[in-house]
Design a protein around this nucleic acid. Structure first.
Length: 273
DNA sequence: CACGAGACCTGTTCGC
DNA sequence: TGCGAACAGGTCTCGT
């Protein structure tokens, strides 16, 4: 499901609370229960169950597509992959289909990890860098400049689309926002990274930041049953618009498969040179 | 190093 | 209506 804007929205809601749902900050954990063991990437279930009770939520943030829960002594990391979601619910609510992990909290609450496709993963560790360390830069960070992007693009020779999806190159972009950013930047998804001029790199940098910021502003995109609450799907320019006219030039949007991912682009606005 | 295929999973939609 | 194929917001591993 989620890319950077959706993960950001979920993390913000858990940190700040939303209507009818309190913040998790300051809450303590009573116990945890795994309903699908493979959801837990590390440590062992035995360690997981013994480390969590008594831990208090100190901070909640996002890094790439990971949700980072800073607890008293450990860090809980959650990656939602394709279909994961995190819900705060009453601890006596019926266990919904696809719940994979329940964490009981004080105050009669429960944090539930729901994940139909079972791809999502959870880590509990004292060394979060052991999981997050390989991630590339945060695209919205002040320290990430157009020059940085240009230099990184020229350090490799790869097709732009798969490179933008590579989380060690840049953290947080997924299939939707990569397609939207490339369209806004007027770059073909198969363009080789080291062929971009400084001007093209800057356009890509601006476009990536633009689509991510707009996504966050609209609480992410909700394109099917998996994620709710976002609006950005109404503003897609190419994603899932195959055959529909480009808003710039009227040419039908085309779809091709790149790195096994559906890829949407305008052949006129995004020519392959 | 770059790339493609297969794996991990379940649910929904599409095409005949 | 029914049924299999195709597809889905992600990432890992393996072979070339």
């Amino acid at each position: 499901m989620p890319e950077l804007p959706e993960v950001e929205t979920i993390a913000t809601n858990l940190r700040e609370g939303r209507v009818g749902q309190p913040s998790l900050i300051g809450r303590s954990i009573l116990k945890a229960r795994l309903l699908w063991e493979r959801t837990l990437a590390a440590p062992s279930p035995t360690e997981f169950y013994s480390w969590l009770p008594g831990q208090v939520f100190q901070a909640i943030r996002r890094r790439g597509k990971f949700i980072v829960f800073e607890l008293s002594q450990y860090t809980l990391l959650v990656h939602l992959r394709m279909s994961g979601d995190l819900l705060v619910e009453s601890d006596d609510a019926p266990i919904a289909p696809h719940h994979r992990l329940l964490i009981d909290l004080d105050g009669g609450l429960r944090l539930a990890f729901n994940d139909a496709r079972k791809f999502g993963r959870v880590w509990l560790t004292a060394e979060p860098d052991s999981v997050l360390g390989a991630l590339g830069p945060e695209p919205l960070d002040e320290s990430f400049t157009a020059q940085d992007l240009h230099q990184a693009l020229h350090a490799r020779q790869r097709q732009l689309k798969p490179l933008l999806l590579d989380q060690s190159f840049l953290a947080g972009l997924g299939n939707i926002y990569a397609d939207e950013a490339l369209h806004l930047a007027k770059l073909h998804p198969l363009t080789l990274s080291n062929r971009l001029t400084p001007e093209q790199s800057e356009r890509l940098w601006l476009s990536i930041r633009h689509v991510l910021q707009e996504g966050i502003q609209r609480n992410g995109a909700s394109i099917d049953w998996v994620y709710r609450g976002g609006d950005y799907q109404h503003f897609f320019k190419v994603y899932q618009r195959t055959g529909n006219p480009c808003y710039n030039c009227g040419t039908p949007i085309e779809r091709l498969v790149v790195g096994q991912r559906g890829t949407h682009f305008c052949p006129t606005c995004q020519p392959l040179h």
